[in-house]
Amino acid sequence: MLDLFLQQSMNGFAQGMSYALIALGLTMVFGVLHIINFAHGEVYMVGALGAVLAATYLGAPYFVVLGVGIVVGMALAWLIALAGIGKVLDRKDGSSTVLLTTFAISIILYEAVVTFFGPTPLRIEGIPGRSEFGQTVVTNQRLFVIAVGLFVLAGIEFVLRRSDIGRQIRALASSAFAAQVVGINVERIRVVTFVAAGALAGLTGALMVPITLFSPTIGHSIIINAFVVVVIGGMGSAAGAVVCGIALGLLEAYVAIFMPQQFASALIYALLLVTLLIRPKGLFGRARA
């Protein structure tokens, strides 16, 4: 039992890292632009697809494949910002309109990928081999995901705290009006944040695809998990997204010991509703005056 528990802990941690990275992008975009990017999951999916194509057709080594995931994620995010957010955001009901435009974009991306590549799962190799810790066996790819994830999280924290651009992002999240007043190029920071979130999603896609296989539906399932994470963690809270993302991965892995996967997912989704009922601002959320 203990072995199973440890085993699931490692698997859940790796999965949770992907939730944390996706939710972090979602929550950063919400914090800075005050919008929900509904197409964020599809950026993850297309990033993973880019990785698959680079590995399969170009035979690129895995580190290059990761780079492809990042670049695809950034490019796609930039296009989404162009098609769905620019000009729309400043309308009176801008944020709800953006919800609709990104929803439309997510439909387009998902259906286009299904149409062109079909629903059959695709797979690629990541970091080969596995490591043993006592009875617990973990694939090196999972360890790699955890390591890269921690590295990226530390890097983001450093950038937000210590760099000019990071301070500007935080300032904009704190008050868009004051950010304009002090001369921050608000539009640029918005795009930077949005594209950075896209890079995160694309990278996560490329990191996870050797583990989860590629299918067009992975974007849809991860976005719902990311919503659960972001709502429970508190919309706009980066710490909440990371902690709850990893916690969700672990929880999912443990619950899967006891019941079929579909019920486990349904149960976890229900957590979102329970959170809204008892703590609407999320565990890490602060009431804003």
Binding site: I36, I224, F263, S265, L272, L273, L276
Partner: peptide, 18 residues
């Protein structure tokens, strides 16, 4: 409003799974 969008989506997903 945004939470309503997310909550409805999630409820649909739960029922779909069940």
């Amino acid at each position: 409003g945004s939470y309503f969008a997310i909550a409805t989506l999630t409820v649909g997903e739960i029922l779909h799974l069940v």
